[in-house]
Design a protein around this nucleic acid. Structure first.
Lengths: 264, 264
DNA sequence: GGGCGTCATTAACATTTGTTGGGCGACAAG
DNA sequence: CTTGTCGCCCAACAAATGTTAATGACGCCC
């Protein structure tokens, strides 16, 4: 299980460095960033809708959801963030929150001042570019969510979400590919997938009955990776997760349907 | 109608400058960017899925859609871009296209080399930040689309889309607030709203019958702005469109439901 | 150890949206 | 002028998902 949470900035840096070229100086600058640790209870706002923030939130452990503007009680989770994710890096350039950030479980975050982030970005252009690229990757995930919610039926949608989370958890710890703690209730899942909670229940039952995945007690067990990838029409390229150097480090066989990341 | 398309870079610069602080030098740098004009026929790809591009596409006139990865024939439009939009600025930091770009009507674009964009970003940190911010605003629009597709019924969804487009067209030309050319077919609209074309037809008829909007012949006429804003639960803040200096320049009364952009 | 709240589960029924199939008008090509 | 295509429009029926309501399991607090 490795001794989780070594230094939150460490794992964030690794994620940045897997997508952007960053040197030793940049590494030092990231690792020396200031941060204020905070623990948040389940279903409590981390950032309120419309609030102007002066810091970004790095998730240390737990689970965070970004909630879209709900009109008449209807909520929609726009994105989720797990340990190692900077949940609102974009707030550095857009401090007026257009959506709320809420803990989906007991979560500990590190509040990182915008001023410090701007400072490292100003000083190291490679970091500025890496920050921009992270925002772009977040947008790519968002785009995939539009497709998921818009054009896939409940079963496919659920399978796709589970595949995405499996890949993301595995990227933080290669042990977590097929079995990971995902502390979201069925109501939360409903808000992610744009379904009702009871239909989520029906759908998860179907996946369980088909031997694809067991989502229970806030833990996800993938029982048949190839099966659930097929059921979810899942292609991980949009996540822009670099392949681990030793490719048997991954329990998850990528199976792109139509495109391959260029390797030149 | 103003003499449309003065200099495409001019209108793009104005949009950038409305959200970011850019000075005279930055202005010059943007205006002097190189660009290769191209005309694209309706329903032709501008960027293919998986293609690696070395330029971004600035829309001069017409309409462009970004298409999500469709699995089994099902298509989903993730975003649309009108004149004055840089359709894939994000490709500068993520050149492998995760989604296709397609013209929805006869469209003319300006291909701007990534090298030139990187150059101005490297040279002017304020431009680098402005580019990042544009990507963040695009992501905010995407987030709103997730909500729209996920949590609003067909009627609300259509009204919301029309409101969004009205605001965006008006931002490019204040005459275009209540009546604008929107050359998307009902099939395109279906792909934007995650409905079938026949249900789009039903829905537009309902909006017409209710005296809210007339969408016909690829032209949109908003008949009752307050009515359609209410029907679409529309709050324009996510678009991050600055208010014009003389506030009676706008035919569109913003009517935020729950939050106001900070004005300090 | 009992009571209480949250979460998961299921059933019966209601509603929205999709599907199929057809017709009509505009327009371009022959 | 004829034919074919495309886009819009509509109706009848089918399927997916939402709604409401009830129950049981579990953990927490007093």
């Amino acid at each position: 299980m490795s001794l989780s949470l070594p230094n939150p900035f460490q794992s964030w840096f690794e994620k940045l460095a897997s997508r952007s070229t960053l040197g030793g100086q940049e590494r030092e600058a990231i690792l020396r960033l200031p941060g204020h640790a905070t623990q948040v209870q389940s279903n409590r706002d981390i950032v309120h809708l419309g609030e102007r923030v002066d810091h970004a939130s790095l998730v240390v452990s737990g689970l965070i959801g970004r909630f879209g503007q709900n009109s008449e009680g209807q909520r929609q989770i726009i994105a989720v963030h797990i340990g190692g994710d900077m949940a609102d890096l974009h707030s550095v350039v857009a401090p007026d929150a257009a959506s709320a950030l809420q803990a989906l479980s007991v979560t500990t975050i590190l509040k990182v001042p915008h001023s410090a982030l701007r400072e490292v970005a100003r000083r190291y252009p490679a970091i500025a570019e890496a920050f921009w690229r992270e925002s772009v990757v977040d947008a790519a995930v968002l785009a995939e969510w539009v497709v998921n919610v818009g054009r896939r039926d409940a079963r496919t949608r659920a399978a796709h979400l589970l595949c995405e989370m499996a890949c993301r958890y595995e990227a933080t710890d290669s042990d977590l590919g097929l079995s990971f703690d995902f502390p979201a209730t069925q109501v939360h899942l409903a808000d992610m997938m744009a379904l009702t909670a009871v239909h989520v229940n029906r759908t998860l039952k179907a996946l369980r009955d088909d031997g694809l995945a067991n989502v229970r007690k806030r833990t996800v067990h993938i029982l048949d990776w190839n099966g659930i990838v097929a059921a979810g029409e899942f292609d991980p390229t949009y996540l822009q997760i670099a392949k681990p150097a030793n490719d048997n480090g991954s329990r998850l066989e990528a199976r792109p349907r139509s495109l391959q990341v260029g390797s030149t």
